[in-house]
Design a protein around this nucleic acid. Structure first.
Lengths: 192, 192
DNA sequence: ACAAAACGTTTACAAAAGACAAGAAAGATC
DNA sequence: GATCTTTCTTGTCTTTTGTAAACGTTTTGT
């Protein structure tokens, strides 16, 4: 099961077998049902997750409404980074939208790995580089494109999540209301 | 002049004097006039910059219009990260809005430092963690808040750049037009 | 100091998005 | 399979934003 994880790490650094053993001993495999909250409101987390299968979102509650800020579906790390790094409670909730298979990495174990495995800093650095580029692209999308263009790009780049995530969550993720997304979809259909 | 830089690094890791010597030998101090383009359109860059004094923005050109996506004013790294990391030409232009004092770090030198200075990976990892958290906050701002709220937050969190950056650049940075920002400012003035 | 360019605001109109409410459709639960 | 909940769509109205153009002011360059 950690095969998938090491296929991922391999894109960044080549861990030795010994490194991998240390990593495996720090990772815990978990399966959780849909609607599980990995991080709850105001919770201070001490764990990072690697999503093997399933679908997860992050959301805020603003004026009683849930505003989705992130959706992910495949191999990748997820966690309340600000809470972990800065040691503060998380304002964001991390919720599984489907049954999920996860690897859990506690912050204490990660910190230990930074000491034991020299490649670990390089690995996480490269992961962060990738995440950063992705975030930058998403942010540019908001600055450059209007909601309709954003929806069309999401449609072309990630048609899969449109099937797996309720539309009202996608709407807030695009920075608009569910009503507005429904109308945008109608507009697009009428054009085509 | 590198004092300021090491005051910054010190927030993340404690480089030895030997480390610092290696770093200093890799860094080049430059002063450039306003309007200098550190990275031009479609240019493949091989350098990272640390801004000591001055003000810099990143922008895209879309439909003939300049859309500002990032503004920074003080100690921090800036560069076309995607271009450097992925080795592709940059679609974003990086421009100095004021005369700037910069430290230049070539990618080749950075890669060498990763070999020579073990702390370097940790340092950049921690820098990236910080940058990532900042990006996440900015992105949340776009998803959670409307343009007026975004302007008010910018006003409260970074009143300084309102003085240093033309309004039409701030407008696109907030994801709106200059006309709209002018209206928002008027609305706020009338309320108060 | 002068001319040119850049900047900020305003206006009128069109397009889009939000708020609110009512229904239809789809899914979950038992 | 009937019920209940969630999700999606639609309608009406209001607010906000975009577009385009005009105008005065400020800044810049020489």
């Amino acid at each position: 099961m950690t095969d998938i994880f090491f296929r991922y790490t391999n894109r960044f650094v080549k861990f030795t077998e010994q490194d991998k053993d240390l990593l495996v001993s720090a990772l815990t495999l978990t399966q959780v049902p849909a609607k599980t909250e990995l991080v709850s409101y105001n919770q201070q987390t001490d764990a990072l997750y690697f999503l093997l299968t399933g679908c997860i979102r992050k959301y805020f509650v603003k004026d009683g409404e849930q505003i989705t800020t992130y959706i992910m579906t495949e191999n990748g790390f997820i966690g309340a980074f600000d809470s972990i790094v800065m040691g503060i409670p998380s304002e964001e909730i991390i919720e599984c939208l489907e049954p999920c298979t996860l690897l859990v990495l506690k912050k204490a174990d990660l910190d230990r790995l930074y000491q034991q495995v020299p490649l670990m800093n390089e690995f996480i650095r490269k992961v962060l580089e990738g995440v950063l580029i992705q975030f930058k692209q998403t942010l540019s999308l908001f600055i450059l494109d209007n909601p309709e263009e954003r929806y069309i790009k999401l449609l072309s780049q990630n048609p899969e999540i449109l099937q797996r995530v309720p539309q009202h969550m996608l709407a807030t993720y695009l920075g608009i209301t569910a009503t507005s997304l429904s109308r945008i979809r109608k507009r697009i259909l009428e054009k085509a």
